[in-house]
Simulated assay, not measured.
Amino acid sequence: MADALAALGAPDDVLDAVRARPTGEDFFYYADNEESLFLFFDVATQWNYVGTMAGVVRTGLNYPGVDSVMSKKRYRRKRLAALFADLQMMEKAALQVFLDEAESRRQ
């Protein structure tokens, strides 16, 4: 993981933190990102899917469903915009991973 992050230009403090973590952890995250990360987990059932000739693909999150989850979790009002922006960033990254995985299965 550290080598991949280094190739992407990750800062030294991030690389040090990744290298210092115990082996066997699934992933590392900073405590500052916990609320956003857990929101991403909470909306895991809100993906939109479309059937295509190439198979079923995810097209993004169902935002009305995301809004419902966010309102039920009662996040602080002043945090909503930042949480949603973080969620969209993770959504975009996840969609790229899903696309890459689908393409590798086709080869």
Rank of each mutant, 00 (worst) to 15 (best):
8 L>A: 13
77 R>W: 03
72 K>V: 00
59 T>E: 10
50 V>Y: 10
11 P>A: 03
37 L>C: 02
28 F>N: 14
17 A>G: 07
38 F>E: 02
21 R>P: 06
26 D>L: 12
43 V>G: 04
73 K>Y: 03
80 L>R: 10
84 F>P: 02
60 G>F: 05
15 L>G: 02
51 G>H: 12
39 L>S: 01
27 F>Y: 13
35 E>P: 00
62 N>A: 09
15 L>P: 06
30 Y>A: 07
45 T>F: 10
45 T>C: 06
36 S>N: 09
83 L>Q: 02
39 L>D: 00
58 R>K: 09
53 M>S: 15
18 V>W: 07
73 K>I: 00
13 D>F: 13
39 L>R: 00
66 V>G: 04
68 S>Q: 15
84 F>A: 07
71 S>Y: 04
52 T>W: 12
19 R>V: 08
59 T>A: 08
13 D>E: 13
53 M>E: 14
68 S>A: 11
51 G>W: 14
78 K>G: 06
16 D>W: 12
68 S>G: 10
73 K>W: 02
42 D>Q: 04
7 A>R: 14
52 T>N: 13
10 A>K: 02
12 D>S: 10
82 A>E: 14
16 D>E: 13
11 P>Y: 08
31 A>S: 05
16 D>P: 06
38 F>S: 01
81 A>H: 04
50 V>R: 13
9 G>D: 08
62 N>R: 05
60 G>L: 05
21 R>N: 14
55 G>R: 06
70 M>C: 07
54 A>Q: 07
81 A>Y: 11
43 V>K: 00
13 D>A: 12
40 F>K: 01
35 E>V: 04
13 D>K: 03
24 G>D: 15
82 A>G: 15
78 K>A: 13
76 R>E: 04
20 A>T: 03
53 M>W: 08
37 L>E: 06
71 S>V: 01
13 D>T: 09
81 A>S: 13
42 D>F: 02
15 L>R: 04
81 A>L: 15
52 T>A: 15
31 A>C: 03
80 L>S: 06
22 P>G: 11
27 F>H: 15
79 R>N: 09
10 A>F: 08
52 T>Q: 04
77 R>T: 08
12 D>W: 05
33 N>I: 00
26 D>E: 15
47 W>D: 02
16 D>I: 04
38 F>M: 05
58 R>F: 11
42 D>Y: 01
12 D>I: 07
60 G>K: 01
48 N>Q: 14
45 T>M: 05
43 V>Y: 02
61 L>M: 01
38 F>P: 00
72 K>E: 07
29 Y>K: 01
68 S>I: 13
52 T>H: 13
14 V>K: 11
16 D>C: 02
73 K>R: 07
45 T>E: 09
84 F>W: 08
40 F>S: 05
75 Y>W: 03
83 L>E: 05
19 R>Q: 09
43 V>T: 03
44 A>H: 14
14 V>M: 14
47 W>R: 09
63 Y>C: 11
79 R>P: 02
10 A>D: 12
68 S>V: 12
72 K>C: 05
8 L>Q: 12
14 V>T: 10
41 F>D: 03
69 V>E: 08
25 E>I: 15
28 F>L: 15
35 E>G: 00
73 K>A: 08
55 G>E: 09
74 R>D: 07
38 F>N: 05
15 L>N: 08
78 K>S: 07
30 Y>G: 07
60 G>N: 10
64 P>T: 09
47 W>A: 06
